[in-house]
Simulated assay, not measured.
Amino acid sequence: MSRTISSTALAMVDRLSKGLVDLVPQIGSEDFPRLLAEVIKEFVPSDELTLILFEDKPVFLVSEKTELIGSQSVDMYLAGAYLLDPFYRASVDLKKSQFFTYDELVPDGFRQSEFYKQYLVKIGLEDECGYLIIFPGGQFLHLSVGHGKGSEARLNPSELQLLESLTPLIDMLCQQHWGEQLSNPLNRQLDQALANFGSSKLTEREGTVIRMVLQGYSTSAIADKLFISPGTVRVHLRNSYKKLDIGSQVDLHNLFMGALMQFENYEGGDPLEGFF
């Protein structure tokens, strides 16, 4: 019984073959991250494609729009705002490389969060998907494909399925390129800075509530997760704002970032201690 291969499938195999012919010889070279991004763009449209390597600290390897965010926002992201990035949060417990869409990761109030407004909105991104490539030493690569609001480049289900199917290949190529280069274990010390934020000034429950607000959880989602009423969440939030002398989520985000940026090397405890 004969089988016919569609022209679409043949064209895709052709693009993949040509991309790998250019990419594979560059494993280990400085051009590899850029060429990897080019291969991805051969398969799906995007408004922004970014590679961030998280080793001892995060480093932008490829980014087409970081200049639109501004140097201050980039500095803040690298100094610790990445702790609030849903892709980073997903990496904490991830054991193997995986493809994600933002909708799979973000809390229900994420698009009202200051992280979303400070970083994604400023560069015009509304939707994002990408890979988390996990290395043996705990380091990871975030390869993201971003799309603007109303963009013609936004991906359909078939394109998302295609990207997901490429996960083993992308993972293998990245392991080959970075596997022997990564000598520094991932510094997760700042994870404790988020976990301890506000602990010297707030009750345990108040601290939990404001950390969830920072990550983009809505009042109703916080209530559901903590098994309390939305009214109780609002009381905890009001009391926390009063103790921290702030009045909004913008103030809370700025306080968190200000506390983090005072450290060259965070060594534990509430980042707010000594900040006021």
Rank of each mutant, 00 (worst) to 15 (best):
L163F: 09
T232P: 00
I134C: 11
G231H: 10
R188P: 02
C174V: 08
S144I: 00
I222A: 06
A195P: 02
F197H: 09
S113R: 05
L132T: 06
C129H: 06
R154N: 12
D103N: 13
H147C: 08
N156W: 03
S113L: 08
G138E: 02
S218N: 04
L190T: 08
K225S: 15
R111L: 06
I133G: 05
I210P: 06
P168A: 03
E204M: 02
E128T: 04
Y102D: 11
Q192F: 12
L190R: 14
V121G: 00
G216W: 02
G198D: 01
G231Y: 11
A153L: 10
N187R: 13
G179Q: 06
N184M: 10
R188N: 11
T208W: 05
L169S: 03
I134Q: 11
E128N: 07
R234A: 08
L166S: 04
S199L: 13
V145N: 04
G137W: 09
V235M: 13
V235D: 12
L125D: 00
L173Q: 01
Y119Q: 05
S158Q: 14
L163N: 08
Q215R: 13
R211A: 10
N156Y: 06
K117W: 05
F227L: 13
D127W: 10
E126G: 14
L166I: 03
R234S: 15
H142P: 00
M212H: 09
A153C: 14
L226V: 03
I123V: 15
L190K: 14
R154S: 13
H142M: 06
G137M: 11
G130S: 03
G231A: 15
F227W: 04
R111S: 08
I222Q: 04
Q161K: 14
